[in-house]
Amino acid sequence: MQPPARTGFHRPTLIIGVGLFALAAVTWFDARSMTIRANYGMGADAASYFVAAFLGVLGAGHLIAAMRPGIRADDTDWAGVGWVLLALVGLIGSIWMGAGFIIGSTLLFAFTARSFGRRALLADLLIGLALSTLIFLLFNKLLQLALPAGPLERLF
């Protein structure tokens, strides 16, 4: 996707470098706000300052590296990535709203399959439903593992 960065900065490297600086700043401020001190030796803030400094150095390294041409990211099927993210949203949403494990995993399965270009959404929903019901029964009934329950789980 990225045009070969012959002139100017290599954008991704630059963005990551700035991100590292931001992370370092957050860590530094977090360390400064710590209130509990160790009675003896070093406190919990020491490691934070160390990591913040480390991230800062790497951020500077990225800025320097950004002046040179960097890696060209491969072509990306953003629609596919979007479908996988939607699949994860489907699962998390189901758990959040109390729809349960089976519905959540069914959505996850079907949308992920869709992301790889399958168009048979109904068939995939059914396969996902069968798979997640099987998993639920196996773990809930046989192994006594409490997976998040929703209306479907209550049927068993």
Binding site: A87, L91, W96, F109, F116, L147
Partner: peptide
Amino acid sequence: MPWLYAGILVFATMGTIAANPSV
């Protein structure tokens, strides 16, 4: 591939849900 990765994601998230069912 579609089913393989769909299955992987179902099991992978299930492991997390089983250990700590939090959003």
